[in-house]
Design a protein around this nucleic acid. Structure first.
Lengths: 225, 225
DNA sequence: GTCAAACATGTAACATGTTAGTTTTGCGGG
DNA sequence: CCCGCAAAACTAACATGTTACATGTTTGAC
């Protein structure tokens, strides 16, 4: 019999709902999260909300001030850079590990991700593109085969997704260039050029950083204007 | 006025006590942690214990099976490797960042750590040596200046400390070689040879991995014998 | 008028009762 | 003797009452 997925606890379900709300931008950055109000809103008691907020604090999406309250995280430009650099480090290392251990598995997984991204561009479906992008990069980590790195990586996903959403109005993602970089990466892997692949990957994430930077600058200008 | 450090909550204090007990080997690997019994033992109610266990799960020191119980983590050889590799990745990256940003600060911090380690060897004080070692490597991360990486790094510390304790009977740490590697690293930094410094660092952590491996093999043989 | 101390209010942390799910055990049938 | 099933004991998850803390406001002294 197939291993069934564990039934999510109420706490986890609560965390999922709050996380989604943050990532989707329904809860603005920095806004206060009263445990009582969240409990009433979600129709549960305070316990699961309390524990869910603790979990989200570990993920970096929520900041908890003891005895005062919880708030949606307020990322600085620096922290966005840190997240991106961190991600680049983990992905580069995983890419190298994957290429040394089982390059074909990696290339297959990357190709699959790239295919769904290409389809998304064709259909002009940004959400699908983002999903494909996530899968592409998750595949690198997955193929690296290091559980500890995978865990750390997963903790960068939520905050970066939230950033992307909240800066979306001013972010103009260059889908074509992004797509091309992914294909370059696959090509480098196929040719066995690990160093070049790592360079491409770092550059790719570097572009993401620069987009966050310009987006946050635009945001700041809009705030002043 | 200097910023005072925040008073730890009961939950955090509870987590600290359980963490220490695991790292010091008072709670054996894989042993069951009943929330009720821990609460009675520590003289607190179940709530802070429950939340503390959730925190320790996030740190990787305990595994929680919903509705069943919590257990001290049971590291496999693979997971020990993963932790070491992960650490090597984070430290290498931080070393590079620190060398590019403010090499002198880094060298000062490393020298300070190395000094206390040398003193510990002179006094034949293994605990002090471990503390100096921790400070040395923490300094690399600190000087890297990336908060996201620092957070991930801190999550590798507890499990690795616990491993070290539990394998201590069979681990014969080569203090002299370890000390020498640290000094080599500082020298490479002073000369500005970033690549060489990263190589030395990776090799140093690689030695740690190999010690875990031989120690766990000895353990296995003892179990059979 | 200014400053500080008492107070009122709102908050999460903690304690504990209740519920629901899991594991173990013991008994009866094969 | 072994297997299956049922019941009991145990466990954590959840709900909620209580407490202690943080913070903003008012008031009284100077």
């Amino acid at each position: 019999m197939e291993r069934l997925e564990p039934i999510p606890s109420l706490m986890e379900a609560t965390a999922d709902r709050i996380r989604s709300a943050i990532i989707l931008g329904e809860l603005p950055l920095g806004s206060k999260l009263s445990e009582q109000k969240l409990a009433d809103m979600l129709g549960v008691s305070r316990s699961p909300v309390h524990n869910a907020l603790a979990l989200l604090q570990y993920e970096g999406l929520v900041e908890v001030l003891p005895k005062v309250g919880s708030f949606v995280f307020t990322p600085s430009v620096k922290s966005a850079f840190d997240l991106c650099d961190h991600r680049a480090v983990l992905e580069s290392a995983s890419l190298q590990m994957a290429m040394e251990a089982n390059p074909n598995t990696l290339i297959d997984a990357l190709s699959k991700g790239a295919a769904s991204m290409a389809l998304a561009i064709k259909n002009n479906d940004p959400a699908a593109y983002t999903a494909g992008d996530l899968a592409f990069h998750a595949a690198i980590i997955e193929c690296g085969g290091n559980k500890s790195i995978a865990r750390a990586y997963s903790h960068t996903v939520g905050p970066l997704m939230a950033l992307r959403t909240h800066l979306f109005t001013t972010m103009n993602t260059h889908l074509d260039r992004s797509m091309e970089e992914h294909l370059d990466l696959i090509q480098a892997c196929k040719e066995g050029h690990i160093d070049h692949a790592m360079t491409v990957l770092s550059a790719h994430i570097g572009h993401l950083v620069r987009e966050y930077q310009t987006a946050s600058q635009s945001d700041a200008e809009q705030s002043r204007g």
